[in-house]
Computed example of a mutant assay.
Amino acid sequence: MYTDWTFLRDLLATSDDDRWRTCVPGTPDGEYKSGILALFSNDRGYYWQGGVTASSDHVSVNNLLHRRILEDVVTGPDLESVEG
């Protein structure tokens, strides 16, 4: 099931900036490999859209994306209430 772009734009435009993250990694030459949109409630983080399976130099790009989101939750003062 695909999310309608209008819905997605409206959702992000009306949400506080600290309640969602886009993570889009690329290769050193600028080629995009994957991307994830993560949403956050007061106590939970949600992997919502994206995460196309990809690898670069035999490394799972999605594993790196998940790690980045977890680092944001653990170290970001605006996400300190997120527990899961």
Rank of each mutant, 00 (worst) to 15 (best):
F40W: 00
G35F: 04
I36M: 12
D16C: 11
D29W: 02
D17S: 13
A54G: 11
D43K: 13
T22W: 14
G45W: 06
Y32F: 14
I36A: 06
S34N: 07
T22K: 09
A38W: 04
F40T: 03
R19T: 14
A54K: 05
D16H: 09
H58V: 04
P28Q: 07
I36F: 05
Y47N: 04
Y47C: 07
N42L: 13
A54Y: 03
R19H: 07
R19E: 05
R19P: 00
G50E: 08
D17V: 15
Y32V: 14
G35S: 15
R44T: 15
Y32P: 03
R21P: 01
D17R: 11
D29F: 00
V59E: 14
D43I: 12
P28M: 06
F40I: 08
D57A: 12
E31S: 05
W48P: 00
G50P: 01
E31G: 01
T53E: 10
H58E: 11
T27G: 01
C23M: 07
L39W: 04
S56V: 07
K33N: 02
S55Q: 12
R19F: 04
P25K: 04
L37T: 01
G50Q: 09
D16M: 08
T22G: 05
R21Q: 12
D43H: 13
E31T: 09
A38F: 06
G35L: 05
N42R: 12
C23A: 12
A54W: 02
G30K: 03
F40R: 00
S41E: 12
S60G: 05
F40D: 02
Y47W: 13
G51E: 04
C23P: 01
E31D: 10
D16G: 12
P25Y: 08
D43V: 11
G26L: 03
V24N: 09
T27C: 05
G51F: 01
L37G: 01
D29V: 05
P28C: 07
D16Q: 10
S60V: 09
L37D: 03
R44E: 14
Y46M: 11
D17F: 02
V52I: 14
Y47V: 15
D43N: 14
D29S: 10
T53A: 13
V59Y: 06
P25M: 07
G50A: 10
D18F: 09
V59W: 03
V59F: 07
S56Q: 06
S34L: 02
R21H: 09
S60K: 07
E31W: 02
P28Y: 05
G30P: 02
D29C: 02
S55W: 01
W48V: 04
W20S: 09
Q49R: 11
D18Q: 12
D57V: 04
G30W: 00
A54S: 15
T22S: 09
G30Q: 01
S41F: 04
G30A: 09
I36G: 00
N42G: 10
W48F: 15
A54E: 08
G45A: 14
S41I: 11
Y32T: 12
D18K: 11
Y46V: 14
A54Q: 06
W48E: 02
V24W: 06
Y46C: 09
Y32D: 03
W20P: 00
S60P: 02
S41T: 15
D16V: 08
K33A: 05
G45H: 07
G26N: 08
V24S: 14
K33Q: 15
Y46P: 01
S34C: 05
G30L: 03
C23V: 14
